[in-house]
Design a protein around this nucleic acid. Structure first.
Lengths: 118, 118
DNA sequence: GTTCGACTTCGAGCGAGGTCGAACTAAATC
DNA sequence: GATTTAGTTCGACCTCGCTCGAAGTCGAAC
């Protein structure tokens, strides 16, 4: 079991941010100790990592919440979750493509400066 | 010469956003007509496109402003601008790398769902 | 000469995603 | 039993990047 501090360090988040995620409903799976402290299992940790992955690829908090709610709901939602991931995958691929194009523009700009045509 | 509306359409921005960019100092090069309307040359248009490229790759408004101020300042700032572009290029490459890793995680997740281990 | 449409400035408001601090609690150490 | 450390809640605040609306101006068409 991991404390909020440990999860924060592993996932490069602040404990504040993790509590914020919890408040927003992203962590419906997190258990508490007797004294009310959040406690994360290995499975929970993996889910937090997934949250980071989705967040860092631009999925809004609200949509991540939907996904996590479905995870808690159980295997009946597996197909819907899969479809969500597939849709998000497409979106990420699109973003990377745009990135590539912009990287190209930046490279051209650098070449301009290198050939002195600035 | 292009009107604000035309630039907006070409660059997929709203006229509001372009005025906001101007207010923030991103467009120190923009000329005005007698009656005070903004008017963009082809060179200006290219700079607006560059602004979009930098913005879409995560460069903050304030840093874009610095760059544009240097553009207006003239060729004396060329080396500094080049260094800025090189630094940004690195940052974009880093982002793309992170993207790739995250795409991989998403792909694994999809595979999990496909093999029924959800 | 008035009406229209596209522009102008200005300042307020908004949504997303945190970020922070105050006040409190619980368990562990001295 | 007092202190320290790590956690808790709650609500206020912050930054970024817009977004919008009100009120006004200008030039062209009718």
């Amino acid at each position: 079991m991991y404390s909020i501090q440990e999860v924060a360090q592993i996932c490069d988040l602040s404990p504040h941010t993790i509590r914020y995620y919890d408040k927003e409903g992203l962590l419906p799976f997190v258990a508490r100790t007797k004294s009310g402290n959040r406690t994360f299992s290995d499975t929970d940790l993996e889910l937090v990592k997934l949250i980071c992955c989705l967040k860092n690829t631009g999925m809004p908090i609200k949509e991540i919440k939907k996904y996590m709610d479905m995870v808690v709901e159980g295997s009946g939602t597996a197909e819907e979750r899969k479809q969500m991931m597939i849709a998000h995958r497409r979106e990420v691929a699109r973003q990377m493509d745009e990135m590539r194009k912009n990287l190209n523009i930046i490279d051209l700009k650098i070449k301009f400066y290198e050939t002195g045509r600035h």
